[in-house]
Design a protein around this nucleic acid. Structure first.
Length: 128
DNA sequence: CATCTGACACTAT
DNA sequence: TATAGTGCCAGAT
């Protein structure tokens, strides 16, 4: 790596967001599926699920097919949905009607230092 | 600079 | 289960 470029890294917060999301998506193994919200959270940007979609379309080289909506629903429209479904099935992911069988194919993001699974409880912000 | 839209999620009905 | 309303943030017009 060109250490010259590593000097300062003027990465904008937005670029960091994209990089984080990109990284999270790349962590999804083949035959596995994740959701926008999960990726956003894993990237460190909860509630930014929308940005995940934007990154997927803008950034090339990402397994976009492994990303679906909440509950395994395909948020795509038209033929893109069929394409995603086709690709996922090709990877071994099974579908249940219009949704993905998340029960068996949802990928779990591992957090650095994540020990004692179960103790690691995610805090859900109470609204209202 | 203001407004709308979007590969979403969540809650309520 | 399906539909509607609301919140979120960035890009496009």
């Amino acid at each position: 790596m060109t250490s010259e470029r590593n000097r300062k890294l003027p990465l904008s917060p937005q670029q960091a967001l994209v990089a984080a999301i990109c990284n999270a998506i790349r962590q999804i193994p083949r035959g596995r599926v994740s959701t926008y919200g999960a990726i956003a959270k894993a990237a460190g940007y909860p509630r930014c699920a929308r940005h995940v979609g934007r990154v997927l379309k803008q950034v090339d080289g990402l397994p976009w097919q492994r990303v679906s909506g909440s509950g395994g629903r395909i948020s795509l429209r038209g033929e893109m949905a069929m394409e995603q479904r086709f690709l996922l099935e090709a990877e071994g992911v099974h579908f249940r009607g219009r949704r993905v069988n998340m029960k068996a194919f949802e990928h779990r993001f591992v957090r650095a230092g994540g020990k004692t699974p179960g103790t690691a409880r995610k805090k859900r912000l109470p609204r209202k």
